[in-house]
Amino acid sequence: MRRSRGIQMTAGTLLILLALVYLFPIYLILINSFKSFRDIFESPLSFPASFYLDNYTKAWKASDFLQTLLNNVTVTALTIAGVVVFTSMAGYKLSRDKSKLSWFFYILFTFPFLIPLYSYMIPLVQLVKQFHIENSPASLSLIYVSTSSFALFMFHGFVKSIPVELDESAYMDGCSQIRLFFSIVFPLLKPAISSVAILFSLWTWNDFLLPFLILTDKDAFTITIKVFQMFGMYGSEWDVITASLVLASMPIVILYVILQKYIVSGIAAGAIKG
């Protein structure tokens, strides 16, 4: 439906104003991260008189920022690789195979999407300790993969849009099924792969409870855990805290700004196809 240009502009301006009010909390953290503790305590609303960078040096040091960042990147990258490869394989086959067995597995695999982590966290954490894989980014990733039903749904749904003839004919050729999958079907899943990759990087990057339970070594902490720990340590020291909140969020926000087009289409595609 077309509206006149005038209405468009007014509505647009109003909505942008609304969006700015909406983002006020983020603005707030940003300005306060440049203020001394006393200034935050006395006037949390005012714009910083001068840009006070001490908070950032303190936060950078206290959060061991580069190491933490590296941990996050490792966990996220491994998770995405695992999720994409394993769930696309499973999702593809479960979608193609119409047998009862296939249906049974599909239903079985939906459970992690619904059942929250804390209902089995105690035995899970014990298991991880038994394997001696605590404090390792890869073990975190393995657990994320084990519960990535959501990705499986997406692939399951997406595969339906790929003509069966494509893989059927090749199957007749006697081509190995998995090679066939990776050479022919996998590239066709690109849109779904990018949605899955984007969603899981957001979720993995920001996840709290699992790393909170599994990572006990400071050197293995991810950013959210670091922030949480720092809050415990610095209490209401809002100067260091605000700076570390900004630091912790910076990488993902930058990534979002660069990749936002893909993120948006990824989520949208995920919702519609899923």
């Binding site: 894989i133 390792s136 890869a138 073990s139 293995a220």
Partner: peptide
């Protein structure tokens, strides 16, 4: 090959700790 990949993945996961 895939089994090996999986096993590798699991081993790698132990690596940091190992």
């Amino acid at each position: 090959g895939f089994i090996i990949l999986l096993v590798l993945f699991i081993i790698v996961s132990g690596c940091g700790k190992a």
